[in-house]
Write a protein that binds this DNA or RNA. Structure first.
Lengths: 181, 181
DNA sequence: GCGAACTTTCACTAAATACTGAAAATACGA
DNA sequence: TCGTATTTTCAGTATTTAGTGAAAGTTCGC
């Protein structure tokens, strides 16, 4: 390695590696706090900061995880649309690369969370409301009022998010910056 | 119980109880998907749909959970500000009631998540950026660019959320509804 | 300052979740 | 069609997280 030959470069490489590790570890912890598998978040972090696409083996090596674990979480990331697999001509190995555009990442995550969690939650609420629709007791009315309020709010939030992710970054970001002033 | 005396009321009570249970269970599952302890979310759900304040013992009974569990999660909810404890004059028992206004609930959750997860994440990113600031390699530049983009985005999101939760529901909701058109 | 009502803590256990590694399946070139 | 490179699966295990319940602590009326 050229880098090891030069003490300054070697020190810099160590410094960069440390920062990268820190980022991967912390991103894993953050994902975890939001209900995302720690390893999945770490792989995502690793792919975000790696310019080139990586193989399963490289991911295993970098994060010191098993093949099964790397495989499952890479598939999960592909399922989210946050990572795509690329095949290099003449090679049988599969390479993985992350979507690096932050706005696109955000849109993907919002869309998926809407689909996986917000929509189902709205359906549950609607179902609860329907179940007590014909009841007349004060308790039933109170229950219906509360669930209805929640449902309306979530539908509104869902709608706003849909509109936001449908718009172009180029129109939203300037708006947001202006909004902040 | 009066309700058991009248078959129609009894049937209605069962129907309502089923809907309430469904709501509590599902809200627990939803909370879970977003990184919140299932029981905490269930207690929150129970308090949201219960008009009166409940004691620890009532929560234990309703959800069939231990005193320790009920206690810990009630405290956690109070810590978030989603539930407040109320004392009735002449009684030593502590009663708990949830904030029922959906907009206020939303603001509390956003504020807490910002404080507990978004801000720390931004600090981590800034730290990573700083660590590689003086490095000159292409890899370091690439890492810096990517983390900077993430950081900028999160700061913008943080700012927008701050502004949203600082505003009045009466000004945001009509705006959102108009935005949806 | 005693004792009952109530709250808090925490060592232990249970349950849920994540990870491993090796075997099976698949894909592909020769 | 065979052999090998690669991917996929999954039973078993490890780790993490949540929950229990009883004991200790607190508060307050008397």
């Amino acid at each position: 390695m050229e880098k090891q030959a030069n003490p300054a470069n070697s020190a810099e490489a160590v410094q960069l590696a440390a920062a990268r590790d820190e980022f991967v570890t912390q991103w894993g912890a953050i994902g975890n706090a939001w209900g995302i598998n720690r390893t999945m978040a770490q792989i995502h972090a690793l792919l975000i900061i790696t310019p080139s696409a990586l193989t399963t083996d490289e991911v295993m090596e970098e994060l010191k995880i098993s093949r099964g674990n790397a495989h499952t979480n890479l598939r999960e990331l592909v399922g989210w649309g946050l990572v795509r697999s690329v095949v290099r001509k003449g090679e049988r190995k599969e390479y993985f690369e992350a979507e690096k555009d932050v706005w696109k990442m955000f849109c993907i995550i919002v869309r998926e969370r809407k689909r996986r969690e917000i929509r189902p939650a709205i359906h549950v609420l609607k179902d609860c409301i329907e179940r007590v629709d014909d009841l007349k007791s004060a308790e039933a009315k109170s229950f219906a009022t509360q669930t209805k309020a929640l449902c309306d709010f979530m539908e509104m939030a869902d709608g706003v998010l849909s509109k936001v992710v449908r718009s172009e970054q180029s129109s939203i970001v300037p708006w947001a910056l202006k909004f902040l002033k």
